[in-house]
Amino acid sequence: MQRVNMIMAESPGLITICLLGYLLSAECTVFLDHENANKILNRPKRYNSGKLEEFVQGNLERECMEEKCSFEEAREVFENTERTTEFWKQYVDGDQCESNPCLNGGSCKDDINSYECWCPFGFEGKNCELDVTCNIKNGRCEQFCKNSADNKVVCSCTEGYRLAENQKSCEPAVPFPCGRVSVSQTSKLTRAETVFPDVDYVNSTEAETILDNITQSTQSFNDFTRVVGGEDAKPGQFPWQVVLNGKVDAFCGGSIVNEKWIVTAAHCVETGVKITVVAGEHNIEETEHTEQKRNVIRIIPHHNYNAAINKYNHDIALLELDEPLVLNSYVTPICIADKEYTNIFLKFGSGYVSGWGRVFHKGRSALVLQYLRVPLVDRATCLRSTKFTIYNNMFCAGFHEGGRDSCQGDSGGPHVTEVEGTSFLTGIISWGEECAMKGKYGIYTKVSRYVNWIKEKTKLT
């Protein structure tokens, strides 16, 4: 034993070699072989497995989906700052455009905790909710729209109204504003409101030439003092309507412009014939205590009207009353817009006519005020429907199939267009061939041609 100890002390290297040989010859039971080890760690190889990531292109799944990435790591994937920024906006807080917040056709661009709407022409605001041009839906104005110097929408209202708090709607500024039905039992019968379409306001006024200088022999019209197929109006439903009495009662109609003036057809009036105007009328054979009678003290036909040349060209006249009318729910003026808007309103496509005229061709006159909704007829169809001249200051309205029309005794009465609950004068009943005849239409004086003249002559002093 002493000898062994001496050998170990003198030859430590020998001992180490012996131990190493023993270990190498022993069977290893701690580690699995290569094949079995792979069965336990069965993990798919990654895209760049075996390579240094710093030297390969980034992978979106590896960089940002398996674990949260930084902007720089995302930049490695896209290799483009702009594309990385677009991805980053949604990656950080989701897609803010998912709810489609942009209105009126706006395009949404996502941002971090926010979004941006790219608005089409005519709109602005956070969600493109603000109209900035009158060309689109009248700028959301209830009545009139004008573009300011910086191309912003400025709404306005006709006389007797003021802008509401929203700067879009119009509200009454006087007790009985024009064009409004205020009798409670008839307010439910107000005709369907007309909503502004998209309009090209630059070209809204037709490029028409008034044929002022045409000389033409007097034409022989049949029954051209021209509501057939209409309905009984309720008291106060058309408070701007008046009836004219002269040699015979209810020979023509008219509309209240203001307390002192009536507008009617020029062919209705004769110099030297006494005319009485009755406002607030409903049943011409009954006294309903809503009527107001006034005498006409002055007749002003349009300066281009000449019955000797043509009885229905420039067929418009103004009547001055001896005493002002007292405005109330049964006696209310009709609204008159400017030339541009009167023309736009007419193009809405349908209007209402009213009167006490004959209820059928050569038949009896109506006792109760009649009204009828009539569609506008395109000019080409209008011209083809008659052998008589249709001037540019006239328009056609009615039904091709016949059966409904204005008729004798309705002449001078109103053709009105309702705009968001307020009625505007767009025409004056003038003439036609018979009444409600198939293929024939009622012919009306186009008020847009005469609004400046009306307003100039009827100013209240």
Rank of each mutant, 00 (worst) to 15 (best):
E320P: 00
V181K: 06
W261K: 01
D405K: 14
F196S: 14
P333D: 01
V227L: 11
K137M: 15
T158P: 04
I443P: 02
D232G: 05
V374P: 05
I428L: 10
H267V: 02
H314Y: 09
R373H: 13
N100V: 05
E124H: 04
I316C: 02
E67I: 05
A380W: 13
S329V: 05
T290P: 05
N48C: 04
K457Q: 08
D111A: 08
N306M: 06
R404Y: 15
K293Y: 14
H361N: 15
T417C: 03
F87D: 15
A37C: 04
G21S: 13
T158R: 01
G125D: 00
P12C: 15
H302L: 01
I428R: 00
N304R: 13
F176E: 03
E434Y: 11
E285F: 10
I262K: 00
V416W: 15
N310K: 06
I429V: 09
A233K: 05
T16S: 06
H34F: 08
K152V: 11
S448F: 02
D150P: 10
V277S: 02
C119G: 00
Q241D: 03
Q370P: 03
G442L: 07
T16D: 03
K459N: 15
S107K: 09
N59H: 10
N306G: 03
I443M: 10
M65Y: 13
Q237K: 04
S217M: 12
A307P: 12
T190F: 08
C178P: 02
N36T: 08
G402K: 14
V153D: 04
E35G: 12
V154I: 12
C435W: 03
N203Q: 07
E72F: 07
C97Q: 00
V199Y: 13
D223V: 07
M394W: 06
E259F: 03
Q96G: 15
R191N: 12
I454G: 00
S99Y: 07
K347L: 07
I316A: 02
I256R: 00
F71R: 12
Q185F: 15
E79L: 03
L318H: 01
D110Y: 06
G403T: 15
D131G: 10
D150Q: 10
N80H: 09
K459F: 07
V257R: 01
S354G: 12
A26I: 11
L130G: 08
R226T: 13
Y391E: 11
Y444M: 05
V30I: 14
P324Y: 03
E79C: 04
F395G: 01
T264H: 01
V359A: 15
T133V: 14
E401K: 15
E320M: 04
D111I: 11
I334V: 13
T271F: 10
G105D: 04
C18K: 02
H303K: 09
V353Y: 04
V30K: 13
Q57F: 08
R75A: 11
E129L: 02
R140C: 04
D322M: 03
P301N: 08
H34E: 07
S187A: 12
I299F: 07
L383D: 06
E420I: 06
I300T: 04
I390S: 11
I428D: 00
K274N: 15
T417I: 05
D198N: 15
V199G: 12
T190W: 12
T287D: 14
F395P: 01
I299R: 06
E76M: 13
H282T: 13
S184M: 05
Q219D: 07
I454W: 00
T81W: 05
E116D: 04
T158E: 04
T158A: 10
S354C: 09
R358F: 07
Y305R: 11
V273W: 13
S423Y: 15
C396K: 02
T194S: 13
N151M: 11
I309Q: 13
N147H: 11
K293S: 08
V202A: 13
L24P: 02
Q2W: 15
V154L: 13
E72C: 03
N135W: 06
V56T: 15
D131I: 05
P197W: 07
V263T: 03
K260A: 04
C119N: 01
V199D: 14
I214S: 12
A192R: 05
E54T: 07
L41H: 13
S448T: 05
G58V: 13
S406Y: 13
S385Q: 13
K347F: 04
K109N: 09
G409H: 12
A164S: 06
R191S: 14
E72W: 05
F121C: 03
I454A: 01
I428C: 01
P120G: 05
K137F: 09
L211T: 15
S70C: 05
G439A: 04
I316D: 00
N151Q: 09
G179W: 01
L211V: 14
C435I: 03
G363A: 07
F360T: 14
N100F: 08
N203A: 11
A192C: 05
V278K: 06
A307Y: 09
A307V: 08
E66G: 07
S448D: 13
V257D: 00
G427H: 01
C28H: 03
